[in-house]
Simulated scan of single mutants.
Amino acid sequence: VDAFGEVATSLRRSGNLADMLGTTIVMADLLIQQGRLRDAQRACEDALRLAAEQGEPVPQSTADLHVAVSELLRERSDLPAAREQLLIGQALGERASLPENRYRWFAAMSRIDEAEGRLDDALDALGAAERLYRPGFFPEVRPLAAMKARLWIKQGRLGDAQGWADSQGLATTDAPGYLREFDHLTLARLSIARHTSDPQAGSLDATAALLDRLLEAADAGGRAGRVNEILVLQTLAHAAAGNTDLALRPLARALAQAEPEGYVRLFLDEGEPMAALLRTAADEGIAPDYARGLSAAFVREDDPGASARPLAETLSERELHVLRLLATELSGPEIARELYVSVNTLRTHTRHIFGKLEVTNRADAIRRAEKLGLV
């Protein structure tokens, strides 16, 4: 991260904007691995502002930056805004994207489809990503084949997912390695799903041991983003084995680390087992505001028309988008331009947000939103 940050600064000073934008995408990927979602989004949005200032022709990699922002918005569960970013990138055309990055548009769309419950559409999008995939200069640490296996697991196609694991030569006894970390986490997901569908098929001891080794390696490497996922899987494994008390221990750490960065889909993507654990965590006083906010988000997903208790219920996706921009250093007119709305429309959104958060100014709204894990 330090090296790419220095390179990006040097390229910017020398006027090499195209390469600076491409470097920013790589740096954002690394920041996400570190669990630094805010820094990643800030880097991408700063780069997009520089690209906009240049005007036509649109610099190469501009579309790729919109894809990167889309993935960050998806993690915050602002799905309409995430899709909007992809459509903006698509409208810019292939000239605004590096050839080795074009598959990422479809991979990001797949993740949005998955979050919206359209698993068949998600698989179709991954198929398109596979057809476009070209090896780049950097290792692929989130392989498309493993992403497909995760969708099969969600669909209950455990035999297909096991076929993928066998083809990759994966085993719960493997030593951890960064380049296979995503694969091993996918294998752990498969093991948990198998145990859930048939608890008599065997224990999860080997899977728990694998997750312990992966956690140690990710901690040592400073990969807090991966640590968060491992903690979530440890939580689900303990819960699947009937050990709720043990499950709350990694969940408490995951909530503590995820709350400042505004993670949402990290938990929502795990479905009802995680929803139940979050309710228990809130009752036990474990990050209660954050856990309740996430629980309310589950309610909103299951029934978008339902009244979702204090705040998560009341803020629309558009208002959440505005709230996130209010948490930046952008001025009101700059936020209005970012949203393609008038200043008066922005004021209306802001007034509604303040009322729902029970605050009277921007600073208090940001503090309230941070406490609740919304920004």
Score class of each variant (00 low, 15 high):
residue 1 V to R: 12
residue 2 D to R: 15
residue 3 A to L: 13
residue 8 A to K: 11
residue 10 S to P: 00
residue 12 R to P: 00
residue 17 L to W: 06
residue 21 L to A: 09
residue 32 I to W: 11
residue 35 G to F: 08
residue 36 R to E: 13
residue 39 D to K: 10
residue 39 D to Q: 14
residue 39 D to A: 15
residue 40 A to H: 04
residue 54 Q to S: 14
residue 59 P to H: 06
residue 67 V to L: 08
residue 68 A to R: 14
residue 80 P to L: 05
residue 82 A to W: 02
residue 82 A to V: 04
residue 84 E to H: 15
residue 89 G to C: 06
residue 89 G to W: 03
residue 93 G to W: 02
residue 95 R to N: 11
residue 97 S to H: 10
residue 110 S to Q: 09
residue 112 I to W: 08
residue 118 R to F: 10
residue 122 A to T: 06
residue 125 A to F: 13
residue 128 A to N: 15
residue 131 R to C: 12
residue 134 R to C: 10
residue 141 V to K: 13
residue 143 P to L: 03
residue 151 L to R: 07
residue 152 W to T: 00
residue 153 I to G: 06
residue 157 R to I: 00
residue 163 G to Y: 01
residue 168 Q to H: 07
residue 173 T to H: 12
residue 174 D to T: 06
residue 178 Y to Q: 12
residue 178 Y to W: 15
residue 180 R to M: 10
residue 180 R to Y: 09
residue 183 D to F: 07
residue 184 H to V: 00
residue 185 L to Q: 15
residue 185 L to G: 12
residue 185 L to N: 11
residue 190 L to R: 05
residue 197 S to I: 00
residue 198 D to Q: 10
residue 199 P to N: 04
residue 200 Q to S: 15
residue 204 L to H: 01
residue 204 L to V: 01
residue 206 A to D: 14
residue 207 T to F: 04
residue 207 T to V: 09
residue 209 A to S: 14
residue 210 L to N: 03
residue 212 D to H: 12
residue 216 E to G: 07
residue 227 V to G: 11
residue 233 L to S: 08
residue 251 L to R: 03
residue 252 A to P: 02
residue 253 R to C: 02
residue 254 A to C: 13
residue 254 A to L: 02
residue 254 A to I: 01
residue 262 G to K: 06
residue 262 G to T: 05
residue 263 Y to N: 12
residue 263 Y to K: 08
residue 268 L to R: 08
residue 278 L to Y: 01
residue 286 I to P: 02
residue 287 A to N: 07
residue 290 Y to T: 02
residue 292 R to F: 01
residue 292 R to G: 00
residue 294 L to R: 09
residue 296 A to E: 13
residue 298 F to R: 04
residue 299 V to F: 01
residue 308 A to F: 05
residue 308 A to D: 09
residue 309 R to C: 07
residue 311 L to F: 12
residue 311 L to V: 14
residue 312 A to H: 11
residue 314 T to R: 14
residue 314 T to V: 09
residue 315 L to D: 01
residue 318 R to Q: 12
residue 318 R to A: 14
residue 319 E to R: 05
residue 319 E to Q: 11
residue 321 H to D: 09
residue 321 H to E: 14
residue 323 L to D: 02
residue 326 L to K: 05
residue 332 G to Y: 09
residue 335 I to S: 04
residue 335 I to G: 05
residue 335 I to D: 07
residue 343 V to S: 14
residue 345 T to F: 06
residue 347 R to I: 00
residue 355 G to N: 07
residue 368 R to E: 11
residue 369 A to S: 07
residue 372 L to P: 00
residue 375 V to G: 04
